[in-house]
């Protein structure tokens, strides 16, 4: 029953966006362009150097492709969580909490921004290009398929947890944004370019390194310059699952703490 309600809501959101095809096409185009900018920046950087943080152009593009695909999928699935600060500030969250449906699911399905397929498209095309050099083994095929999905789940969980900051701060949007878009940027480069502290944060606190860096190591089969054991590069799904647990905990704590914004 519940499932069909969400399906119907999402379908109606999608239909409404397709009602204005020109505007929709422009929107997709701008998302496509937006996602391509960092790729262009990477290509510009490689007109100046032959390797970045010990990785070749092809390898960095592979990392970017994995990160961009994961980001695009996550943005499509849970990008709407960005609206949480508005729901809290206006008190609209009360309405969601009163309905006999999950508040988070309602929030996420309130608007599905189909234009974000533009981002996914850039990620997939880049990924396909970067994967052509891979020496395929059955395990690597699994990694290539699972990594973007696990990365998307991981990023989704991080964003939901980050946006929960709004339960404690009145205007937490920018703080959450720095995590959301910061993670997009940070995961697009090999973590070897960051200093030791940023790297530790990305491996153990906000585990962005598992979105693209470690899967890329698994796909290219190169030794980890940071000396992590080989098993780590296959851990993305586990880390994603753990992060989902953390996000669920943070969300529940936030909702329990929520008292409304007054009359």
């Amino acid at each position: 029953m519940g499932k069909s309600v969400y399906a119907r809501i999402v379908a109606s959101r999608i239909r409404s966006q397709l009602a204005y095809p020109v505007s929709f096409a422009l929107d997709v185009f701008s998302q496509l362009l937006g996602q391509s900018m960092e790729l262009l920046a990477i290509l510009v950087i490689f007109t100046q150097v032959t390797s970045l943080g010990g990785f070749s152009a092809g390898e960095v593009v592979l990392i970017y492709g994995l990160a961009a695909t994961a980001f695009g999928l996550a943005d499509l699935a849970v990008g709407q969580v960005e609206a949480l600060p508005d729901y809290i500030r206006t008190g609209e969250l009360d309405v969601l909490l009163l309905r006999p449906l999950g508040a988070l699911a309602q929030l996420l399905s309130a608007d599905v921004q189909l234009r974000r397929v533009g981002r996914v498209a850039v990620g997939l095309v880049t990924l396909a290009w970067a994967l052509r050099d891979v020496e395929w083994t059955p395990l690597r095929v699994v990694v290539a398929v699972v990594a973007p999905l696990a990365g998307a789940v991981l990023l989704s969980a991080i964003w939901i947890a980050a946006n929960c900051v709004s339960f404690w701060l009145v205007d937490g949007r920018e703080v959450a944004n720095s995590v959301t878009y910061g993670s997009d940027f940070a995961t697009s480069y090999p973590i070897t370019v960051y200093g030791p502290w940023l790297r530790r944060i990305m491996c153990f606190v906000v585990p962005g390194a598992f979105v693209a860096y470690f899967p890329a190591l698994a796909l290219t089969g190169r030794p980890d310059p940071l000396g992590f054991p080989d098993a780590v590069r296959y851990c993305s799904p586990l880390v994603a699952a753990a992060m989902v647990g953390v996000a669920a905990l943070v969300w529940r704590t936030g909702v329990r703490r929520y008292q409304g914004t007054g009359s």
């Binding site: 701060l169 920018e174 703080v175 720095s178 995590v179």
Partner: peptide
Amino acid sequence: AGLATNTV
């Protein structure tokens, strides 16, 4: 809060 984004 915006400063946080700039800093990151």
